[in-house]
Amino acid sequence: MHDTRPPLPPFTEESARLKVQAAEDAWNTRDPEKVSLAYTEDSEWRNRDLFINGRAEIVAFLTDKWARELDYRLRKELWAYTGNRIAVRFEYEWHDAQGQWFRSYGNENWEFDDNGLMRKRYASINDVRITADQRRIAL
């Protein structure tokens, strides 16, 4: 029995928007185990300059990420969709242990299996230093 994660491909505009919102909501929990369940057991990622394979590596990556990126808050926006693929743009804000705030911008390309689990995630991300009063995403 395979896990399923609706909505399932092929995506419509409505189902793609729901998938993007579900991803945003999950990542904003900052719970690596919960987030990892949206990906296939052998999911392939490229995140900046890192290549990550499988749920165990996803959990390790997210655990480390959210230990460094404090008070992380994310917003995602549907950019395009077709069949079993979705492209999003996103931004998130966070601060480091010294209190320096950042806004990180990026794009992701996602590919899903027939059960709605993400099997590929390719992310390009850039960070910009901001001051606390420049924040746009509330905690």
Results as ranks from 00 to 15, higher is better:
Thr12Met: 10
Met1Gln: 04
Leu8His: 05
Arg55Gln: 14
Ser124Cys: 07
Val59Gln: 04
Glu108Asp: 11
Leu78Gln: 12
Phe11Lys: 14
Trp66Cys: 10
Phe90Glu: 12
Val128Ala: 06
Ile52Met: 07
Asn109Gly: 09
Phe102Ala: 05
Ser124Tyr: 11
Asp71Met: 04
Tyr39Ala: 02
Thr29Asn: 01
Tyr39Pro: 11
Arg136Asn: 04
Glu69Gly: 00
His95Gly: 02
Asn109Tyr: 13
Arg75Lys: 13
Ala16Cys: 11
Ser124Met: 11
Pro10Met: 04
Ala56Met: 08
Trp101Val: 01
Gly54Ile: 08
Asp127Met: 00
Ser104His: 02
Pro7Val: 08
Thr4Cys: 07
Ile125Cys: 08
Trp66Ala: 12
Thr63Asn: 06
Asp42Pro: 00
Arg46Ser: 04
Gly54Lys: 15
Asn109Ile: 10
Thr29Gly: 02
Ser15Arg: 14
Gly83Arg: 13
Arg119Asn: 04
Glu14Met: 09
Gly116Thr: 08
Ala60Glu: 15
Glu69Tyr: 03
Ser43Ile: 09
Tyr39Ile: 05
Ala138Gln: 13
Trp94Ser: 10
Asp127Arg: 02
Glu41Asp: 12
Asp96Gln: 11
Tyr105Arg: 13
Arg135Val: 00
Leu62Ile: 01
Arg46Glu: 02
Met1Ile: 06
Gln100His: 08
Asp49Ala: 12
Ala26Met: 12
Glu41Val: 05
Tyr92Gly: 02
Leu78Thr: 05
Asp71His: 07
Tyr105Glu: 03
Val59Ile: 13
Arg46Asn: 03
Asp133Ala: 06
Ala16Tyr: 11
Arg73Gln: 09
Glu93Cys: 08
Arg55Met: 03
Asn53Phe: 05
Phe61Ala: 05
Arg85Glu: 13
Val35Ser: 02
Arg73Ala: 07
Arg135Ser: 01
Tyr122Arg: 11
Glu91Leu: 12
Thr40Cys: 06
Ile58Gln: 06
Lys65Asn: 08
Glu57Leu: 03
Arg68Phe: 01
Phe90Val: 00
Phe102Glu: 04
Asn126Lys: 12
Leu74Pro: 01
Trp79Met: 11
Ala38Met: 12
Pro7Arg: 14
Ala87His: 04
Val88Lys: 14
Ala80Phe: 04
Leu78Cys: 09
Arg135Cys: 00
